[in-house]
Design a protein around this nucleic acid. Sequence first.
DNA 1: CTGAATCCTGTATGATACTG
DNA 2: CAGTATCATACAGGATTCAG
Lengths: 123, 123
Amino acid sequence: MAASELRQEDACRTRAVLDLVGDKWSLLVVRYLSQGPHRFTELKREIDGISQRMLTVTLRALERDGILTRTVHNVMPPHVSYELTPMGRTLREAALPLLEWSVTNLAHIDAARAEYDARTSPA
Amino acid sequence: MAASELRQEDACRTRAVLDLVGDKWSLLVVRYLSQGPHRFTELKREIDGISQRMLTVTLRALERDGILTRTVHNVMPPHVSYELTPMGRTLREAALPLLEWSVTNLAHIDAARAEYDARTSPA
DNA sequence: CTGAATCCTGTATGATACTG
DNA sequence: CAGTATCATACAGGATTCAG
């Protein structure tokens, strides 16, 4: 489908994407897993500021949606690895333009904010 | 920048995008404005389920970030029109792949959820 | 190590009424 | 018409504790 062909009836899809990856951590998890399989503690360490609880919740949701797989290795000590599914990898690809946009425009946005704030609350 | 060149140090950017458009309504507003300038009431009517308050809050945030412009026409009755800035239009373009991904994979996700639920809560 | 369970709080969001 | 102000609420998210 060409980008320009998205139509009105896709509005609900917008909500669907946001419900999926619009939370605070999902895209970050997908980001790190795109570099290869990771273990729980690795993700916990790499994703700055995430709590155990939110990592668990986020991983469960993404597993349920078929974005990643959870594999338990029955060894001692216990071992669980998470890995993107093929669909998870396509999600990562689809999210990249937005991330690139962010990298490109963040400075511009900061400038816009500063100007707006100066304009609305002068002195 | 090539998609494959995004690196670890861009992690913070992921948060920046989500802070910008990861809320419930921003992308929907951008969506409708990509079809041309709209007035407050038009947006209110077209975006299903949004409250006056959230439309106001969302529009203000997007205006502050330089995504759209707010133009007050001094006529009677009052008249305010909202329009995407050039940066706003590039944001819309950057978000399109994710929306297309959603359209393509939503059925797949529903299936994954159903299977997951069946697997975890059997009967 | 990898979680699950519980409790607690802030923020986002919504409903309603009022105003230039 | 296009908001603002106020109040109410739900859910995300954090801290802590417990368990296989």
